[in-house]
């Protein structure tokens, strides 16, 4: 029986589009200051919700980058779906090359951004921001004088982050599966 579709790419494309929808509502990473929270940042490549004392704050450049990431993932997912139903066309490899790496880039860039954030917070202002778990951040004395202020913070990766890793793996598998798919159709 001939293979007409790259089923893994089909699953990867659908999963990529699903990931976008999920990430709009559930963050990949959540950072909370205080308990009950006085500030909270809910972060994913397609959405950033930042609130301080209950008031939402918007950073235009981050918003634009979120939109860019969302468009990039969406076009990647759609083009991966187009590839999946016509994997043997002459231009299919280009479609696959465009689509398969978008979730992978999203995951890698997201992790790099978080690591850079943590390193910057430590080197620039001396805050030990945890990537996961709870910590107590001490405000440096040169900012607050004789007072000592410790801030309880917690951070955690949410399930969409792990889902994104699965999607990225699925899309890379689709790329690897391409070599098997094309001979099946042509043969």
């Amino acid at each position: 029986m001939q293979t007409k579709f790259n089923w893994i790419a089909l699953a990867g494309g659908v999963a990529t589009l699903l990931l976008i929808v999920v990430s709009l509502f559930v963050p990949w990473w959540r950072f909370t200051v205080g308990n009950p929270a006085i500030a909270e940042a809910s972060f994913s490549p397609v959405n950033l919700n930042f609130s301080l004392l209950g008031s939402p704050l918007s950073i235009p450049l981050i918003w634009a980058m979120n939109v860019a990431a969302m468009l990039s993932l969406a076009t990647g997912g759609i083009i991966l779906l187009i590839y999946a139903v016509m994997p043997a066309k002459p231009y299919s490899k280009r479609l696959l090359g465009f689509g398969y790496n978008k979730p992978l880039f999203a995951v890698v860039l997201f992790v790099v951004e978080l690591v850079v954030l943590v390193v910057f917070a430590k080197t620039l202002v001396g805050f030990d921001v945890p990537l996961m778990g709870a910590a107590n951040i001490q405000i440096p004395q040169n900012i607050i004088g004789d007072l000592s202020i410790g801030i309880g913070v917690t951070s955690a990766f949410e399930w969409p982050f792990y889902f994104a890793i699965v999607v990225a793996v699925l899309c890379v598998a689709a790329k690897l599966y391409h070599g098997k798919t094309v001979p099946d159709i042509s043969g």
């Binding site: 634009a64 980058m65 939109v67 860019a68 468009l71 990039s72 280009r94 479609l95």
Partner: peptide, 29 residues
């Protein structure tokens, strides 16, 4: 020719998805 056209379209999509939103807010602000 078709492969080249597809390639060009994909490059334009790649650039457009990033440049359009970022450029828009830069112009706005």
């Amino acid at each position: 020719f078709t492969i080249q056209i597809v390639g060009i379209i994909l490059v334009l999509i790649s650039v457009g998805t990033v440049v359009a939103p970022v450029g828009a807010v830069v112009v706005m602000y």
